[in-house]
């Protein structure tokens, strides 16, 4: 037997702490797991959206592709429409977001007749090269975003918006 014998009072204190801890854990565990669920939820990766654009019809000239998909935000489902500028470079299909990096207006391919091989934003005259690289001296601060691209049944599939990988 050790000399530090646990006194009756100490024993009761420890037991009280233990039972209290059990009650707190029993109450809080389900609640905390409930609250942090979004962090632990695994999303289906690579959710691609089918567009009506045939890959075979693509050329090196960017075309405007409108597409829409159902966005599921827990119990709230909504139809989201979006646009991309799609073209072929060699065998690779490239899809760029039309959202100007200056203030979010919409860019157009060859929108400015003085620059027929560039994207042009009518709002403040921002221009981008075909790769989406912003032309220095125009308002945008970065290159156009890019979409992840896949192909299915000969149609272009668009995925997440990612930072431009061509520049």
């Amino acid at each position: 037997m050790s000399n530090n014998r646990v006194s009756r009072r100490q024993f009761l204190n420890y037991t009280l702490t233990g039972v209290g801890g059990f009650m707190a854990a029993g109450m809080l565990l389900p609640m905390v797991r409930f609250a942090i669920d979004p962090v632990l939820q695994t999303k289906a990766e690579g959710d691609f959206v089918q567009t009506s654009q045939k890959v075979a019809d693509l050329t090196e000239e960017p075309v405007r592709v409108d597409f829409s998909y159902e966005q599921v935000d827990a119990w709230y489902k909504s139809e989201v429409t979006d646009t991309a500028w799609v073209y072929k470079q060699g065998d690779q299909v490239i899809a760029l977001s039309p959202v100007c990096k200056h203030l979010g207006c919409t860019v157009n391919w060859a929108g400015d007749s003085a620059h027929p091989d560039q994207f042009f934003c009518a709002c403040h005259g921002g221009r981008y090269e075909k790769t989406g690289k912003n032309i220095p001296g125009t308002p945008p601060t970065g290159p156009l975003d890019e979409y992840e691209v896949a192909e299915q049944d000969g149609l272009v599939m668009l995925g997440k918006k990612i930072a431009n990988t061509l520049v």
């Binding site: 207006c105 919409t106 157009n108 929108g111 009518a122 709002c123």
Partner: peptide, 17 residues
């Protein structure tokens, strides 16, 4: 009207800005 339709849309429905 190239710059009109770019922002105000083909249906004149308006958009972002």
């Amino acid at each position: 009207g190239k710059s009109c339709i770019a922002c105000h849309g083909t249906e004149m429905e308006g958009g972002g800005a």
